[in-house]
Simulated assay, not measured.
Amino acid sequence: MSTKSTYYAPTGGLPPQTQLLSDRAIFTEGYAIIPKRVLTDIVISYLPFWTHMRMWVIARPLSGFSETFSQYIVELGPNGGSDKPELDASAEAVLFVVEGEMDVNIEGIVHNMSAGGYAYLPPNCQWTIKNNSDKHAKFHWIRKAYQFVEGIDAPEPFVTSDHEVPAIAMPNTGDVWKTTRFTEQSDMRHDMHVNIVTFEPGGVIPFDETHVMEHGLYVLEGKAVYHLNGEWVEVEAGDFMWLRAFCPQSCYAGGPGPFRYLLYKDVNRHMPFIRPKN
């Protein structure tokens, strides 16, 4: 993967009073789209035990909709960070840096992460984070309650990069559709995958995928047209798509450059039952 790849990161601010009100934001029973234009200062959130940070929450569990994960875009100012970033011992996480650099201390080992950096943090992991640079850093923080299985150990933490992991071409696609997989699909320790999907201009998902895995898709680069639950929508770098389980989905990459997105999906576990109350 070329180190020249760029990742879109929100800048905040507020639109002028002269801007049109209508936008591409959509929330339906099958999917939601949060376009980049709505990630303004008035929708930011904060967390306890953090300094010089703010974040945009682009996914959270909702009853009757997507239910397995949360996703934040975190902005850290110079000297910003936290010695108590995660307050839920059962939570696992992926951090993916889209701008700047930061130091993540994982179990006593400090990792300097810059744009494209990827870290997996298992449940009960001890970690801290600090922006020791003089510029802002921005990263995605994807969290999930880890589903323990008796006889299978939880995964180990690891740090890698988009630039270090080769993308794998999907079969019979002529290399126009590739996936950068940061964990092995057959590794049953993992109950979520956070990958990067790349389409070259003109590449397509040639059928409406309809499957049990729910998705969060943040567009890192480029643009495309998506077919979601029977409707066509345009998306571009900075947009986020939230797809419920079984939402039909296909796409066409419109070019002129690569279309890339950060993809969350839940994997490798039985489907939980909704049990009747006694």
Rank of each mutant, 00 (worst) to 15 (best):
Y118P: 10
I274V: 13
F182K: 03
Y264L: 14
N172Q: 12
I44T: 15
V212W: 02
I196Q: 09
F49H: 15
A224V: 11
P16K: 06
W127H: 14
H215G: 03
K36D: 11
M170K: 05
S45D: 12
F246G: 03
Y46Q: 14
S90W: 03
L87Q: 08
N195I: 09
P157F: 12
I33G: 04
V267G: 04
D23V: 01
W127F: 15
W242Y: 14
A224W: 12
D175Y: 02
H215M: 05
P157S: 11
D208A: 15
T11V: 07
V176H: 02
E67H: 02
D153Q: 13
F96D: 02
K4M: 12
S45I: 14
G255R: 11
E92D: 04
R181E: 08
L39P: 01
Q147C: 09
Q249N: 13
A93V: 00
Y46D: 10
M55A: 12
D191P: 02
V104I: 15
T173N: 00
F148R: 14
D41I: 09
A9F: 14
V149S: 14
P16A: 07
N229W: 04
H111W: 08
W50C: 06
S22A: 13
M213E: 12
N278P: 02
S90G: 05
G100F: 03
K135W: 00
S186N: 11
S63H: 07
T68P: 00
N132H: 11
R244D: 13
S90P: 00
I142F: 05
P35W: 12
N79P: 01
